[in-house]
Amino acid sequence: MERAVRYLVSIAALWALWLALVGTLDPQEVVAGGVIAVLVTLVAGGAPFTGRSLRILAPKRLAWALAYIPYMVWAIVKANLDVARRVVDPRLPINPGIVRVKTRLKHPVARTALANSITLTPGTLSVDICGDELYIHWVDVQAKDIEEATREIVSGFERYLEVIFEDAA
């Protein structure tokens, strides 16, 4: 049962992607997209939605994911204004270094999303993940120790990503 649902979700997602890319509802394209979506799903064994990640479609998680979008957009805009200010300033005010932070997230997808979010936000660029520690290049190092760095960089995203991806929350 679980397996059949997974296959159906995969087929629907691939079909929707095909139709979005061709941009028409011409019957030819609809039929071709359906056939190719089924073939790809059978060959890949429902790979895009394996294991427990189907549970990501629960309403609470979707609501938090929707709330995450404006938060992220605001963070990206802030990041860019920050970069613009630093780049056009003739004195080039930077104070760079690599700091270490800790994350509570366990799920690999959640960690990937966290690293991506960190890269897109003000002055930080994730360099490596090992275990639950992230190494982050920071243009303007403010924090003195690992707790402060974690609070400044990671906590804001963790609050959302924990609900969206983790089981415990």
Binding site: N80, V87, P96, H137, V139
Partner: peptide, 11 residues
């Protein structure tokens, strides 16, 4: 390189 990447990626 790392500072360049900061500006390059975000902006």
């Amino acid at each position: 390189l790392y500072n360049r990447m900061q500006a390059g990626t975000k902006a």
